Simulated scan of single mutants.
Amino acid sequence: MIKPHRFSIGPADAEIAMLQWGESGKPPALLVHGTGFVADVWDEVARDLASTYTVYALDRRGHGASHKPGAYHFLDYAEDVCRVIDTLELRDVYGIGHSAGATDLLLAAQLLPGRFTRLFVMEPTVMDPRAARSGALNDESLARVEGTLRRRAEFDNADAVFARYRTAPAFADWTETSLRAYVRHGFVPLDNGRVRLCCTPEIEAAILRPIYEAMEQVYAGDARGNPFGGLAGIDCPVRVTTAAKSGPIYQEMARRAVSLIPYVSTMVFEGAGHCVAQEVPARVVEAVREFAK
């Protein structure tokens, strides 16, 4: 079994935790997880791809062992991806991302033209700036963001986390390998022997607010503005995928992405839900390889 090499880039106050599967010298593939997770949830996909690629994955800011600065706009994440690519001097990158992590790659591709060879993005979070609305989050979305603050953050031990999550609907279809990777690396041990989420409820709520704003077409960005218009400038082939068992909003955001990106194609993972890489990793690898042909 290929075990990933762990390292980090950047200074202590802006550190990005990284994993690498396989030897250097092969074409690079960069994997970016979705909200709440960690680089390790890619393990089954990454181990398979490592026969062909030098596979990298990162803990997104606010997650895992990476920095938690309090700034969680879409461009913050995209700039982190650019920093990884520049620091590691990666060229001809195959970007593979899920949900908000897929968005990171789409936005990074417009910031670093010519650096990606292709992008495989699974249900990215995308708004259409041509249909932007004024106003703020509706009450339902605001309640969902605030409800995150009530999420349980501490458990007696990792086994207790696994037992709890194994029966949770959100994780019901995950492979055991993927779920154990998340439990092991998505929690930090405390001095009293208990474990706590790395992406705390407070951090996750801060991350989710701009995501829900994008869903509702009210995302304005920060002082840098709304970055989604730049998707029209992506200069490499992009495959946007959806999952048949996923929610309607993911289908809608995929349609928005397809309408904005110039060199785009689509596919559907039948019989799978939103976290497709953790549910059917072999099918994801097959699709990733097929798109590379």
Rank of each mutant, 00 (worst) to 15 (best):
P4D: 00
H5M: 08
F7L: 07
A17G: 13
G22T: 10
P28R: 03
A29W: 02
A29T: 06
D40M: 10
W42V: 06
E44T: 13
A46G: 04
A46Y: 04
A50F: 12
Y56S: 01
Y56G: 03
H63W: 04
A65P: 00
K68G: 00
G70H: 01
Y72F: 14
H73A: 12
V81C: 09
D92C: 04
S99M: 07
L106P: 02
Q110T: 05
P113Q: 04
G114Y: 07
R115E: 05
G135P: 01
A143N: 08
A143G: 02
L149M: 07
R151W: 05
D159L: 06
T167H: 13
A172T: 02
A172S: 13
V183S: 02
R184A: 14
H185V: 00
V188Y: 04
E202M: 08
A205C: 13
R209H: 07
P210F: 11
M215W: 12
V218C: 13
G221A: 13
G225D: 07
G225F: 13
P227I: 04
P227G: 11
D235Y: 02
C236W: 09
P237V: 14
R239Q: 14
E252V: 11
R256V: 12
A257Y: 04
A257R: 12
V258G: 11
T266S: 11
E270Y: 09
G271Q: 07
H274W: 04
H274Y: 08
Q278A: 11
Q278P: 00
P281W: 10
A282Q: 15
V284D: 08
E286Q: 14
F291C: 05
A292E: 12
